[in-house]
Design a protein around this nucleic acid. Structure first.
Lengths: 195, 195
DNA sequence: TTAAAGTGAAAGTAAGCACTTACATACAAA
DNA sequence: TTTGTATGTAAGTGCTTACTTTCACTTTAA
């Protein structure tokens, strides 16, 4: 099958799911938006559910995180965490509409989709947890449960992203985002270092 | 028609719309939850749209605001604004789930519902604007466009409500809500007084 | 007691949706 | 040329949902 077609469907699906939600967007619309027939959509993705799950995987933070951890393996912890946080916020912002709508409709999703999404989050946290664990083994940071540590770290920046949504009209530009991220990471790290 | 029935339908509708959204909740479910037949629901409200609009009107802040303005007419401005803000936040909190879900699905609503909701908001702002206008006529506060003034006031406390949603895990109880409201109102008023 | 109003059960209508089937077309590799 | 692959069109299936119709029952009020 033509690769371009699949990409175009995914692109249109992202747009319509973001606008109208998983439940609100119809496969007909998505096909029309992509400029292909509805049948072609099903030939590529079999079910609507499948299409949505493909989207989730495509825009997941997990592969980005894995890349970053690999690249920053030999760099100091602070530098790595800044890079991770920056990428995390960037990824959230790029999928802002989808993230927003997913949280609103989550409890109405069919079970398989819920499961995929939950696993995606858990896997991401676990990946970061494993990263923290290395530093714990080397005795560089204290030995709290690494999963909780990772959850706290991602939660910290997720809430930062959420707050940004609200201050729409005020546009708080007193500090640069880089500065805020760096400060957050410093505070977080200060709590972890061995006394 | 029995009054109790209508109230029970509205109550169940509020519950299910809050949980599943306007699009996600079905009339069958609502009827079942209310312990009446689906037919009775339609006899009372004619359409699902109508039922939802009835809910919006029932839980609107507008009548509360009108009452408050009447009651506090002879009281000082600060006291009135504190009462208004307190009631506004209370009303938002009581309908938290509905407010949340409405903003998520708003752009998927049928036009009549959108219109009713927009008008509700506009009317509420206008009502408060008229109240501000009285004080402007008496020369007690500066003469900015009163609609913008009212919008800013309500927006201030709406954003406070939103922030509270996010800080779920942290439960910021450093200051009492009364204190925060009072401080917000003071700041707002300080900006309005004639120098 | 009688008439009117409120209600329920069951069945049905019409529309929208995810998804399918059958057949035709265009094109590129063998 | 033949064959396989990617697509389109048109029609249709089966399910869900908002909404309707009919009829029989109960409660309320005159």
């Amino acid at each position: 099958m033509g690769k371009g077609t699949k990409e175009r469907i995914l692109f249109s699906a992202l747009k319509l799911f973001s606008e109208k939600g998983y439940l609100g967007a119809t496969t007909r619309e998505i096909a029309k938006e992509a400029g292909i027939s509805e049948v072609t959509l099903f030939r590529h993705f079999v079910t609507k559910e499948n299409l949505f799950i493909s989207l989730l995987n495509k825009h997941s933070f997990l592969p980005i995180l894995k890349e970053l951890i690999k690249d920053y393996q030999s760099k100091p912890l602070k530098e790595s965490l800044v890079a991770i946080a920056t990428a995390f916020i960037k990824q959230l912002r790029e999928n802002k509409a989808l993230v927003k709508i997913m949280h609103a409709e989550f409890n109405r999703y069919p079970e398989p989709i819920k499961k995929v999404y939950k696993n995606l989050i858990e896997d991401t946290i676990s990946e970061l947890a494993r990263y923290f664990q290395n530093f714990q083994k080397r005795g560089e940071i204290i030995s709290i449960d690494p999963y909780i540590l990772a959850q706290a770290f991602l939660g910290l920046f997720y809430s930062y992203f959420q707050c940004e949504e609200i201050g729409e009209s005020e546009r708080n530009v007193k500090f640069s985002e880089d500065f805020i991220i760096s400060t957050y990471v410093e505070i977080f790290l200060k709590g972890l270092l061995i006394p």
